[in-house]
Design a protein around this nucleic acid. Sequence first.
DNA 1: TGATAGCCCGCACTCGTTTGCAGTCCATGC
DNA 2: GCATGGACTGCAAACGAGTGCGGGCTATCA
Lengths: 359, 359
Amino acid sequence: MRPNQPSLTPAGEVKRAQPPTLRDVAEAAGVHAATASRALNPSTRRLVSAETARRVIKAAKTLGYQPNPIARSLKTAKSSTVGLVIPDLTNPLFPPIVRGIEDVLEAEGFSAWIVNTDNDPERERARIDSLRSRQVEGLIIATARVDHPFLEALHEQGVKMVLVNRRVENLEVPCVTADDATGIALAVRHLAELGHRRIAHLAGPHSTSTGVVRSRAFRHAIRDHGLEDDPSLTVECAHWNEADGATAMRELLDRDNRFTAVVAGNDLIALGCYDVFAERGISCPDEMSVVGFNDMPFIDKLRPPLTTVGVPHHDIGAEAARMLLDCIEEPDRRPRSLLLPVTLVVRDSTAPPSARPSS
Amino acid sequence: MRPNQPSLTPAGEVKRAQPPTLRDVAEAAGVHAATASRALNPSTRRLVSAETARRVIKAAKTLGYQPNPIARSLKTAKSSTVGLVIPDLTNPLFPPIVRGIEDVLEAEGFSAWIVNTDNDPERERARIDSLRSRQVEGLIIATARVDHPFLEALHEQGVKMVLVNRRVENLEVPCVTADDATGIALAVRHLAELGHRRIAHLAGPHSTSTGVVRSRAFRHAIRDHGLEDDPSLTVECAHWNEADGATAMRELLDRDNRFTAVVAGNDLIALGCYDVFAERGISCPDEMSVVGFNDMPFIDKLRPPLTTVGVPHHDIGAEAARMLLDCIEEPDRRPRSLLLPVTLVVRDSTAPPSARPSS
DNA sequence: TGATAGCCCGCACTCGTTTGCAGTCCATGC
DNA sequence: GCATGGACTGCAAACGAGTGCGGGCTATCA
């Protein structure tokens, strides 16, 4: 008696039916398991007669046969699975990216393992090892550190991967990012057109590639518009969050009170600015304009609603996934990188500079 | 020549080393693969001599051996994996729960497959099937519908599961939720103590269990405090989001302008209220108080910062994971459910009712 | 009628690990 | 001296699917 068939024990009660296996459908179709395998697999179906294929497929359907991905993975060393390495799912930046990734993976029969690294390199290495032992066919890496301790090693071992929200120099790995440079340029142009001449920048940490790209773009844009190019108007935040944004803003205000606008490295840093405005009774946008970056969900619900650079997070994820699938299918293709367009979303945190100087 | 050993092709170039397998470490330790397996597995280690165990473990370490989870799963029909079914990762409610779940799973050597259902039953069924074919050992289900088309069937098939943020009647399945009833009671008490007598409720959809629990609790609390118990002061939102919250709020205002406070089914619905206040020039909290539910991230950054009920999302996830692991380890334990305590977070969206009537 | 080719299909092995069973070896007891 | 038992360890068969190889069958042609 086959244990994985519904069957009666001597006592008479019904034993739990195990899911049907390939042999079950083969048996039901009066055929060998090997033939059933070929019939079920579209790419080998031409090896069996049309008639038997039909019979096997029908048997599979009536039994509700689902191939066992584990067994298949063991044999083929493929898993239809990719790893998704992010710092922290709790950061509102990532969920839309993840959805974008999953939407395209799912359409191709793939799924994603998500791991959080909390930006701890040790943890990152461990999680990636665990992903690899699970036979992931590729990696989508969204951890933003600019140094790449073992990415290089992974790449040399032939691990397929694509980077999102991050570029790595001297490494032949495809990446998809938002067009940070034009985003910053749009922000600066907007402020310049409103009449601001002295604009500050709260930069993201320079240990992240977006941090350096954005602050480099800021200096460029300032010069392009012939605005006041004062290096002391840029301060680097320790992390991409409100608290460090607030600290940086305080530092800036304490040493210079003549700027009338600030472009924040991202929305969270802009939120930090809001906190400092409240502390010091600075009114935004009357006395000080702020523009953020990312257009996080609900950022339009703040008072005032934040002017910011809109980033197509879902698309970033989707494109990254598509690119990874391409790499998996044709391993020899040259890595190409993608820069996704951003848009300026003007809301109420920016206005012309007031006549009276800011406090 | 073993193909999975580093080796030289006739042409002389080094072929890529495949990860070492159990037989490799067995060979290196001068022992049979079966013995190596027993030596490496703590629970069977007592079957081999201390000396061989030492040798095998050492060999495994020097080769950098990692057991292949796929092969192990195939053999043992276990995967050290659980499925995590949520409606939409993009809803800020879920990321903290997910992190809570992953934190405890990871400590036990488990990992989670996350699937999004978008609250589509068809999709939910498909995703759950796919999870099951991947041999997940249990399910954590966070989709909030009150009807359970096939949960029952799953349960009867012996699928281990725990529900979060949701209770299901007449179903012996453990669940962990926030203490919605006391949360609502706290909110009502707070408003009553501020002096409000006529309080409205924007309920979540009654197709979700939290929707019905919270609105039942609202009626209870209103009566307990001897406040105006007018059924027309409760309106049900179509979904748990801003847009439907706003619609409900408009409806309410159009038919009654004498209430001075509203308890919203959750923070998003409260956000919808804010939108309507802006539309109609109602000032909060001067003319109208609002309290939300969940204490979403950044909800304290609104103007005015929202008074809301704080829910321990991370803990909910952690407890759910722990409970599921318990079910997996001792299948016979009686299902128990957990109600996690909530706290009222008072911010600036609530104040005593003003003397002049609200518009 | 016999040789040949071509189409289908089954056999048997493989992926890496776990595990029931049986065998070896040594020490102990009578 | 031989049986008994205990402590280890090897053998081989799984788990479920995929695949190279060869064999059987039919059709075609000389």
